[in-house]
Design a protein around this nucleic acid. Structure first.
Lengths: 221, 221, 221, 221
DNA sequence: GATGAATGAGGATTCATTCAT
DNA sequence: GATGAATGAATCCTCATTCAT
């Protein structure tokens, strides 16, 4: 439990001050433990905290991505589900997502290679869906690669501005971004995603500092 | 001239390693000057380099934004011009834009207040245009605020992936993002922007490290 | 038994890395016990391991020295036996001897005083024999003190280079050093030491890490 | 000058406390400079001080060794000159020699490889001379390798006990060790080394802390 | 007897910055 | 205008050790 509390503190500090600008002393103080104790929980030192956070986050993205891909064979639905999962996950764990997105460069060679590979795996799902949608004329895009990048940046951006205590619920944001994504790819027919037994539901990560809300369902209701 | 060379070096380092992770000594070494000499060019120390970079970048964005707003009274055209200017500027100066976008948190209180105010001024232009477009039914958006944020993040994201020596020219990217923006806001009529005497042309900033290309026009041709 | 295993591990580490450069954690890891457990076996902490090792080693040297002195009244024989014992003991327990010789300075005041006194007691045996040999004209030395120091350093040096799995057996080395010692002191008559019931036989110390051989006799055969 | 003063302080501390047990802070305090300043003079950090000391010392040994080898073709003289140079150098720079002899293990891989190679080069001179002496029957040794090791350790040992303010001058010690070496190798004819224009004269090293005496000649007179 | 958790002190090193030259 | 020297503060991390379990 203590370990997770420290991890949440780390996410909070890394997200707001940046990894490089956060000292191990600050982390210790904020978490209420002696700086030396941090090495008890993470022998790898400062970077291990970062890498663990990122692994957790990317694992959840991968999980949601896979669910999205198997949720339908229709590229329209796959894309919307991908985006809903990504944005929902990001809005539900904005600080974790921010750290994961912004601090890749802080990693040393080994962790960098590992985690970039995972991220690339994840992002390739967007390529797959986009490419299929273009081939089947479900989408009308000028440049698939540019479109993918625009989409991903737009979705990642949610981590920069979403506030759990704000005007919009996690699922409202996720749904609207699904709509925006459809527009961006020029979806040729309007596809209402059947959410009756939707399984692409993002989870609150153990790394995300608490901010009042509890989980995706509660946030939607 | 030396000052500008140092500034370009600073942008390069800040963009790739982050401000906090870049030491004044690394900057000196990379720029080929003694670290102490950096204090002749910027008495304010490390942060002055950062603040100057950001001021330069935001000033250019403001300039382009104003040109976009006066380029037409049609919200469709205004929005597309805003986006084309923003994206063009970002693609033309990706490292400067990246630093400006990502390192706000590194600023001390004074500089932070000043520069956030400038950025808010700039971003309010998007609000203005969006709101007018919604009021006049030129746009079909569910939530104007969310739409603005999605748009801005998508545009800012260009700084994360655009490569001057890549497949697409600055203006190709700018034009395509204009199209994406139109889709995102659900533009009701297709508006071909007349670019015959278009004045919204981004400039290469003195802060941007060289990467082969020279300016926006050349990149377009 | 565990205690002795730890002690052997300690000798190994202290001999190869030095006492100061060996952490209690490394010792624990190498010995396969939790670092905290080390304090059950040696409440005095890190230094107690060192002091115990040294005491063991010096006790054996003292034992051999006394045997050497009573083995004969002839200074020639006494000296050769002293050297044979010292070198044999050193070659049989090279790591223990190395630690004992090199790490005196790491001891705190109390242990330092105690163990230096023991060492001085031991080394005074060489003085005694040398002085008697000079007085009786058994030896031809220019400077007894210098000779004693040269002898001792030469003998201690064995700990730096002797390898149990090397070309020479413990006893071969011991015998040859006996010969060298005779030469150094300019022994006036050649004295063949009768080894038929020689009692100056070094023992394998419990502190010495295993290296394949078992004891002095086996090593001789 | 400051650099050399720091170096002498470093030798003093390393010799008396050991490299690992000497902190960079202690070195700074003892040298009267801020710990950070030490990195101004030796960017490589703590180990650079050690490696520099060793390089200086080994270079002087090599120089003396080469002079000894060319001083005569007679193995007797060569050996005595080698030993006189080695012991003279060691007695003249006891602390530097001690550090060089004892702290090899503290070096990192690169420096270790470099400096061990130099040391091996030097020590091979003893092998060369011994082998020739044995072949020409100038020497009577049972085991050339063992003899070389015994000789070297005896000579190195001088660094452990020689005191500049002691009873014996540097050259007295050097000469006596020359005599001991002759005995050890069983020199068949007594060779009086002609020292009238002897060039094998050890120099005071810049790394050696001052202790009252000035140089080899003065110490001899 | 054994150990995971915890910590204050200290390890080497780098930091941004100043200043005399 | 430029820089080598210098430093106090802070960096990450490891230390030997204690203690509740």
């Amino acid at each position: 439990m203590t370990r997770e509390e420290i991890q949440r503190t780390a996410v909070d500090l890394f997200a707001h001050k940046g990894f490089a600008a956060t000292s191990i002393r600050q982390l210790g103080t904020a978490a209420g433990v002696n700086p030396a104790t941090l090495y008890h929980y993470a022998a790898g030192g400062k970077e291990e905290w970062l890498a663990t956070i990122m692994r957790t986050c990317l694992a959840e993205l991968l999980r949601l991505g896979r669910l999205a891909l198997v949720s339908s064979e229709d590229p329209n639905i796959q894309l919307v589900q991908l985006v809903r999962g990504h944005v929902g996950m990001t809005a539900l764990n904005p600080l974790t997502a921010r750290v994961t997105d912004q601090e890749m460069r802080a990693l040393s060679a080994d962790n960098f290679a590992e985690l970039v590979a995972v991220r690339d795996d994840y992002e390739s799902m967007f390529s797959t869906v986009l490419t299929r949608g273009v081939r089947t004329s479900a989408f009308q895009v000028v440049d698939a690669r540019l479109t993918r990048l625009a989409l991903l940046e737009m979705c990642n951006g949610v981590a920069h501005w979403y506030r759990p205590d704000g005007r919009l619920s996690v699922m409202q944001v996720a749904d609207q971004f699904g709509e925006l994504a459809s527009r961006i790819v020029g979806a040729t027919r309007k596809t209402d995603v059947d959410l009756s037994d939707n399984e692409v539901v993002p989870r609150r990560l153990a790394t995300e500092p608490s901010s009042g809300q509890s989980d995706a369902v509660a946030a939607t209701a």
